[in-house]
Each structure stands twice: as structure tokens, then as C-alpha cells.
Design a binder for these strands. Sequence first.
DNA 1: GGACTGACTCGGT
DNA 2: AACCGAGCCAGTC
Length: 105
Amino acid sequence: VVSHRDGPSEFARAVLDVVDAIPRGRVLSYGDVAELVGVRSARVVGAVLSRYGVEVPWHRVLRADGSCARHLAERQLALLRRDRVPVRDGRVDMRAARWDRAPSS
DNA sequence: GGACTGACTCGGT
DNA sequence: AACCGAGCCAGTC
């Protein structure tokens, strides 16, 4: 059943779980997260982070081309540098920093 | 139940 | 590099 009380939906929780699992020094695009939770809309991932992002390492999620949303750029870049993510010209090198969750075993 | 809104993405100009 | 336009879909009203 569904409670009438508001909280993160099951979908939102799935998004937050993925983002929470991104290791320091790595990043994912909104579209990557969408794919991992099983939707084809990258936008809705942004919508979840907009509402609940404060609870997770939201700065590890950015656009597919490695750029940040305008209103977040300054803070996000600072946090990414603190994570030692390679940033060049305000852009993350996705080829180098994209989290590749390859089951090692 | 319909219309709108975006922390998006891709292909085409 | 910089615009489009279309597709996307959970929220919100």
C-alpha cells in the first residue's frame, strides 16, 4: 500500500541509493543513473536530486558531457576537486572519471 | 485526468 | 562552438 505521508517515493529512493554508492573520485551522468534505476529519462534523476540531493553525494552526478548545471557549477566543481576528480576548464573528463561498476569477481 | 515543469540527452543545423 | 527540436517521465497543480 502507499502511505499518504510524503517521503521519497520508491523511485526516488532507488536514485538516491545509486548516487550514494558512487565512490569518491568517480562520477556518473544523470543518464547513467537513470539507466541504472531503469528509466530512460535523465531529467527525473535531476528532479530527485533537486528535492533530496542534500542526503547524498549529489555533486558526483553531472551532465553527459562533463559539465555542471549552471546554478550548481561553482559549488559542484569545488566538491569534485575535493574528491580529486580531474577537472579541466570547468569540465570533468568523463572518459577518465566515469564510474565503471565492473563486478570484479 | 490533463497540462506544465525541469540539476537531461541526442541528433541535426 | 552554439543553437534548435524532439523525446523523456516523476512531480506538481
